[in-house]
Design a protein around this nucleic acid. Structure first.
Lengths: 346, 346
DNA sequence: TTTCAACACGAAAACGTTTGCGCTAGTCTT
DNA sequence: AAGACTAGCGCAAACGTTTTCGTGTTGAAA
């Protein structure tokens, strides 16, 4: 087992100085053709590769991006990661992943672990608990220390950083408009509590769409799912809540769900109650994941283009990192949503 | 924007030496109570944190694990990552992710990028293309350079490293036995080409289960899906292949699919052809993902316990990294599979 | 008063790079 | 032949740590 070879070892072996070796490898004109050849041959033979850590220390940049997301076993987030990874790799960056598990404490710890030199900047989506507590000091602090952040999807407005979001309200309007256009008169929404920023925005879009069509929203049609973070038997209670929604409002003929899981659960419950989809009840979801695509009937849904979000976030971050002038001008990029029409609407 | 504070700056500010600051912060008894307090107070005030990169360079270990997987937008792999991340974090390690996209070249490049000091060891699952080409030099090389590897799921036997696998053949037998026990007489299998190790093993298990019950396998019931790696319209051709399987074998009353996607596609096609599930045809899948759970009817499937695989892999790697004695003794851990019975079987 | 241990701290090396600058010897110019 | 120039290479600093080994100052013991 031969350890990785270093400049020093090559230098000793070839009886030249470390600097000579380094320069020879980088094709410096200071070095004679002879020595250069000799060094390069030797380096190739021993498969020399510069030590990244040493380079990071010297250059004070790591060429690594830190990602903090609430969970990874989630179609949207893994899509985003794949987008980030694609452009990061293309531009010579690595990607290091931390999971907050929706916990404030883990988010803070993870960021602290990475912020001490391990990475050049963050791409993150905020944990639910953080949104609930509205404690954002860890973001401002890292930014103050000169480490840029790009937030995506779940963002907080008053932090000075780049952001990549979808127009959640607009996407929701797309969905609800579709339902209205397909003849729905009593459209329910299955959404989250308001502290989840995206849920709130989508609810808002739902309300706006109704208003645009002179339909007055009814509070009994708005289900804000009790979200206990510990999603174990969460699924059961979700079903029960939705079932009650249907039972208390027999006239529902359309459902807009703010995420995929809510949507297919609604579909499942509706079918259990004897409704036909899309004949009796039409359903539109949000987030184009694997569930929507393979549900029966396939779910009409609003696609967020997760991969594109990731790509854009990575671009913003890397551009920022490699920008010469240190002007603090922050962008908020809105990725277009798109209604993907499938079989759960007429 | 204040940059991160270093020992040197604290030293200058307090008019002591760097060593004193370092020792004071680590509560060395060499330092007087007075100075210690002073230094610690100052450090706290300026929120000093040791630079990870410098530590990595000095200690020649990064406390970081490199993960290379074929794709991340995949329930199983993200489950594994979440498992790795959990134990890595608990033991003070970070996790850096590289995606091979099933490509040999990207796998090699990614490994080279990380192997130059960025990480202490690898956890990986081999790209399909690599399995096809059977070129494993990048694995042996990294191992030779003293960097340990743990392989999971898709492994190659003759590499000397720890491995975490499920007993694919055994899991497949579980599935097929279930079908037999539920009265199936003509059981088809939808599997991959043989170069995918797990596909091959699961096919093997299928054959063994049949033999155990004195049922002779028929080659027309074995569909090895043509897998063109570029899975764009892959889905369509998959449907067509499965449809042909059914049409050419009208007597099929049970299907074992080696992954989730194949399983629910089989379900979809069967239903399209007018079969009732599980009355006419029963189906069992492999991998307990989100699709299985939410399919209608919910899919009976073999769970691999992806998270547990990740946890075990991380444990093996970290134990290896932190072991004093350098003995090369490699383990292959088999994670139990489990049949999760749902509604697609009687 | 001398000697010596204990105490408190600093210098420097090491991890592996890159790079500006200085040095030496040989060649060219006049 | 003396000075100027240049090719080719090495020294040393720097990045931020930790740690070993001094070193100087005290106070007390002899």
């Amino acid at each position: 087992m031969k350890r990785k070879v270093t400049l020093k070892q090559i230098a000793r072996e070839l009886d030249v100085s470390i600097s000579t070796v380094s320069k020879a490898l980088r094709n410096s004109i200071e070095i004679s053709e002879d020595t250069r050849q000799k060094v390069q041959a030797f380096a190739k033979l021993y498969n020399y590769r510069p030590n990244n850590i040493a380079l990071s220390l010297k250059n004070r940049k790591t060429k690594t991006i830190g990602i903090i997301i609430p969970e990874i076993v989630h179609h949207f987030f893994s899509k985003v990661i794949s987008g980030i990874e694609a452009v990061a790799n293309k531009r010579g960056y690595n990607v290091i992943v931390g999971l907050s598990n929706e916990s404030f404490a883990k988010e803070v710890i993870n960021m602290e672990m990475l912020a001490n030199g391990s990475i050049d900047g963050f791409i993150l989506s905020i944990a639910k608990e953080t949104q609930q507590q509205q404690d954002y000091h860890h973001f401002t602090e890292t930014i103050n220390q000169g480490m840029p952040i790009v937030m995506f999807d779940r963002v907080v407005n008053d932090i000075k950083c780049d952001k990549v979001i979808v127009d959640d309200a607009e996407g929701a309007k797309l969905a609800v408009n579709k339902l209205i256009q397909c003849g729905c008169k009593n459209i329910a929404i299955v959404t989250t509590k308001d502290y989840v920023s995206v849920g709130k925005l989508r609810t808002q879009g739902y309300l706006e769409a109704l208003e645009d069509h002179k339909m007055s929203p009814e509070s009994s049609l708005i289900l804000k799912v009790h979200d206990q973070l510990l999603s174990e038997d969460h699924l059961d209670s979700l079903e029960i809540e939705i079932e009650n929604l249907f039972k208390n409002n027999k006239n529902i003929d359309g459902v807009f769900a703010v995420n995929e899981l809510y949507a297919i659960t609604a579909m499942k419950v509706a079918r259990k109650l004897g409704f036909k989809i899309p004949e009796d009840i039409q359903i539109v979801g949000f987030t184009d994941g694997v569930l929507s695509k393979h549900a029966v009937p396939a779910l009409t849904t609003v696609s967020q283009h997760g991969k594109k979000i990731g790509e854009k976030a990575a671009e913003l971050l890397i551009n920022n990192l490699e920008r010469e002038d240190e002007e603090d001008v922050y962008e908020t990029v809105v990725i277009e949503t798109e209604l993907i029409e499938r079989k759960s609407t007429k």
